[in-house]
């Protein structure tokens, strides 16, 4: 696009981000501060993920963008159109065909492959933020590996509800060291983080932090021996493709309480329907 550099950001900025990314990959789960720039889209709408995507995109990359698992949600459409415009690269909705996938709130159902990169949009990168609002304090807690408060919080959930009441942005421990916020993905997706063959990058634009999980890194969801981590389950199957394995969105079909469940991952659902018919 005229007047702008390839993928919008100038090369100096991209280099700054790539350096921060290398540090993030070297220290899995550690939040690296970076000089986040204003993007021509609002903070909170994926500017962190977009800066990471812009920094790693090459002319040969094939980009997929999803929001809530779907390729056709408005913000995913908007971000995909942005990169088509400023980078002129090929885009796709097919998970295995993409070399870079930017996502908000989901990990695709189709298992990722070595060489693929998944870029997460992160609103609040600090997993301890809602326990300790001060950045000065939480940084110290990470440095000292002082994560007891997180377990206390999860324990209090069990005492009150009989369950850990965190259903998304469920905290994980990366490579036995850093407690990390996996971004607001449903805890259903947490097991996909563990030993993922793909590189997982996380970008928080407003908070100016990025972090990473390198391929084949051990990622465990925090839990207790007597209250092991478990994922969401549905009594229903996807009404369109019949999957019993995927994360289901509830769709309200009328004003008389009628509802149905469909896959949140549109590409996965379409592919299955194609195979069935």
């Amino acid at each position: 696009m005229n007047g702008y550099n390839f993928a919008y950001l100038d090369e100096q900025t991209k280099r700054m981000i790539r350096r921060a990314l290398l540090k993030a990959v070297a220290i899995p789960g550690y939040q690296v501060p970076f000089g986040g720039r204003e993007m021509p889209m609002p903070y909170g709408w994926g500017t962190g993920g977009m800066q990471l995507t812009a920094a790693i995109l090459g002319a040969d990359d094939v980009l997929k963008v999803i929001d809530q698992g779907a390729d056709d949600t408005t913000n995913a459409v908007s971000i995909r159109a942005f990169f088509e415009r400023v980078a002129g690269i090929e885009t796709t909705t097919v998970t295995p065909a993409a070399s870079v996938i930017q996502t908000r709130h989901r990990i695709p159902e189709t298992p990722l492959e070595p060489g693929q990169i998944l870029v997460f949009q992160v609103p609040i990168p600090e997993p301890l933020r809602f326990i300790e609002p001060s950045e000065q304090e939480t940084r110290l807690m990470h440095a000292l590996e002082e994560y007891g408060v997180m377990h206390v919080k999860l324990y209090e959930d069990i005492a009150r509800h009989g369950h850990i009441a965190t259903t998304y942005a469920y905290p994980v421990k990366v490579d036995g060291r850093y407690v990390m916020d996996p971004s607001p993905i449903p805890k259903f997706d947490n097991p996909k983080l563990d030993m993922s063959p793909a590189l997982l990058l996380f970008g928080a634009g407003r908070e100016k932090r990025l972090y990473a999980i390198p391929p084949y890194t051990h990622v465990e969801s925090l839990d207790f021996e007597d209250h092991p981590f478990e994922i969401q389950r549905w009594e229903a199957r996807c009404a369109l493709c019949g999957s019993a394995e995927s994360f289901l969105d509830e769709v309200i079909t009328d004003d008389a309480g009628g509802r149905m469940f469909v896959c949140s991952d549109t590409d996965y659902c379409l592919t299955r329907r194609g195979e069935l018919s």
Binding site: D67, Q68, T73, R106, P186, F247, D249, S264
Partner: peptide, 9 residues
């Protein structure tokens, strides 16, 4: 923005 997934959870 859509929060279908988190809300569903």
């Amino acid at each position: 923005l859509p929060h279908y997934v988190d809300f569903q959870s």
